[in-house]
Design a binder for these strands. Structure first.
Lengths: 193, 193
DNA sequence: GTCTATATACTGATAGAC
DNA sequence: GTCTATCAGTATATAGAC
């Protein structure tokens, strides 16, 4: 499933096949419909994010430091896989509107549940940070939306500059995470690492 | 041009005509293509935002208070016209990718210029606030993107609750603006008004 | 100016040869 | 399992009657 890192929705299934170096027949042999293809891609992407962030939430550091690492990993992932993330965004917007066939309900349901589990990683870590006195807020629904809006935003506005290094991206990510942290009401303590 | 406040892209031109109470012929009599229709709608929406925010940038208050009013007006507008804004977003994403016909280049160019003027309203006001000592940051490109990401975000996550009052929305907007202000590094001074 | 066909092109999905 | 047709539906856009 490593094939598509650029985009398929709003680009036809013919395009997908072409990029894969094959034809539609192959795709429809594996997936009954385009929506199912999308669900699989979406799930793969979510699992990738989850498995890169989840370990960070269990580290030995203070909760706020764990949150910072998680947020950095998330934002960095968004930048690195932005083309993919855009497609996911588009697909979610599309399939959430379209009256999903009843048979695809639980497929969509599982996807949403997975996203919820992912959000919970951040929520519980922030709750710990609040108990540590490093955050003034608990993560209400709105605050959570605002936090992810900031961390996800580079998906839409980032575009690589010529000769950009990894350390440039690291600095970019630091700005994003700092913005979100300050926004949430956290203290921007010592620069670790 | 008051006709569409909900959505037209990804909903066909037939739908637009139906909602207008007419047929395709009329639309194609006024606009040479769907892209031109979109450009006109987009421009109208931008001018609406601009004309509601621009006066606020010229008030007598301290710059940071003007910025707060501007940000509140912007966020409130995003919530109130979220369906429209979603369509605009979708259309921009679509038309920015598609190899625009050379004849529509300057149409798109003017649109981008208008958006740039709008962003400048916020930038100059924040610059003044920085000189007043109320902001630590000047508004770099990244900070600007993050700010608008936060202020625009309710377009995607807000949905009205049953029995929601204007004052509920006001509180919501306050949370959004506070998040953005803190994120930018501003002091969250006295609650005015 | 507005409506009713209709041309043209593209998409998701299917059937059947190999 | 993979490819080559091909169907059916829908979209933008156009031509011509009124």
């Amino acid at each position: 499933m490593c094939f598509m890192e650029r985009g398929y929705s709003a680009t036809s299934i013919d395009d997908v096949a072409r990029r894969l170096g094959a034809t539609k027949g192959r795709i429809y042999h594996h997936y009954p419909s385009k929506a199912d293809l999308f669900a699989d891609v979406f799930r793969t992407g979510m699992q990738f994010s989850f498995s890169s962030v989840e370990p960070l939430s269990k580290g030995p550091e203070r909760a706020i430091e764990r949150w910072k690492k998680m947020a950095r990993a998330h934002a960095t992932g968004m930048i690195r896989t932005r083309a993919f993330q855009r497609v996911v965004w588009e697909g979610v917007e599309l399939h959430l509107k379209g009256a999903t066939t009843p048979e695809q309900r639980d497929s969509l349901g599982r996807l949403i549940a997975h996203r919820e589990r992912y959000a919970r990683l951040f929520r519980t870590t922030i709750e710990e940070a609040r108990r540590d006195g490093d955050m003034q807020f608990s993560l209400t629904g709105i605050a959570e939306e605002l936090m992810f809006s900031a961390l996800n935003s580079p998906v839409f506005w980032y575009s690589p500059r010529a000769g950009e290094t990894d350390s440039d991206i690291k600095e970019l990510v630091d700005q994003i995470v700092s913005f979100a942290l300050r926004g949430l009401g956290g203290k921007e303590g010592s620069k670790n690492e």
